[in-house]
Design a protein around this nucleic acid. Structure first.
Lengths: 169, 169
DNA sequence: GGCCGGTACCTCGTGTCCGAGGTATCTCCT
DNA sequence: AGGAGATACCTCGGACACGAGGTACCGGCC
């Protein structure tokens, strides 16, 4: 829906764009995409205009309907908790948050993410005791995992703070 | 399987440990975990020892069988491409890569990841032209997304290079 | 004494994802 | 001329994840 809000597209191109989000979003399989398009069309979220073959087979150009626009905005404004906590989902949310077009609402979403990130969290526990990188002297892989996770987290927190001040100004 | 290779656990605790991997791995629902345990038990990957109620209901302590150990090692040694490219999967792989216990094989896995990360990639395209942060002057969210992604990527690449030299030494 | 919340396991229906397979057209190379 | 490969859409079966609901036991609070 985000990509369709950017511009009308046909299914195949949509699939390629999602695939380009490598590493952060899993590519969508054919057998997932087309049934989903049908479902969304039935639900009135998008319109389909068949365009006689430019390249090969006829393209079905998909356009987000007003209903689809509204649904996208709703999901951007009040994302499920998973979209805040899960890296992959958060990434997609961020990629299209511009469409929300309301600095206050955008700020609220960023604050939810910031709140999640600044909560003390450890990945591994010994009972109730949180384990840190130093607790794995013989596991360089987990130490690396901590190193990467903290670096990412720090960068993102700094960016979120920047954004929040510039949004409320 | 990784957590069970660390130590035998009962299902409930297993679920809590996965849930602690917040932000990187989605929590597993009850209705997913228990059928999966049954399936793995039937497949001979784990053993179940019922331990009469210490806290409340009787605990079923799960132990990875030799077959399960072998399967874990196989998946660590030759992970599906998705475990290399998808952040979430890669994270779990890294968390248990220590169990592979063969520097050469560990190095091969790290090299696959490094190879993936160093491939030129952009998230958004204008036809064939890769778009960079500067191409979104009116979208601070996508600029942030690039900023965070590059920072993470850089940290991880540096770490991977460190690890690879220390593994082959 | 009763009830709430946490522990611990389980089942079932719904939804959805994927891979395998299929169809058809166009371009490019040989 | 013909085949390979990309483009573009579609269907179906199997696998599996999830939420809702259920059972049962324990400890602590009022």
């Amino acid at each position: 829906m985000g990509f369709l809000a950017d511009a009308p597209l046909h299914g195949y191109e949509l699939r390629r764009r999602v695939a380009a989000l490598t590493g952060h979003v899993r590519p969508i399989a054919d057998g997932t995409l087309y049934p989903t398009i049908k479902r969304m069309e039935r639900a009135g979220l998008l319109r389909r205009d068949v365009q006689a073959g430019q390249m090969a087979a006829p393209r079905h150009v998909l356009t987000l309907s007003p209903g689809g626009q509204a649904e996208l905005l709703r999901q951007l404004r009040e994302p499920d908790e998973l979209f805040i906590t899960d890296e992959n989902r958060w990434f997609t949310l961020l990629a299209f948050l511009r469409h929300l077009d309301d600095p206050a609402a955008q700020g609220a979403v960023l604050r939810r993410r910031l709140n999640f990130l600044t909560q003390p969290a450890s990945f591994f526990w010994d009972g109730d005791r949180p384990l840190r990188a130093d607790d794995f002297p013989d596991d360089p892989f987990r130490r690396g995992l901590f190193r990467i996770a903290t670096a990412t987290s720090r960068t993102e927190i700094a960016w979120l703070r920047d954004m929040l001040t510039s949004l409320t100004r």
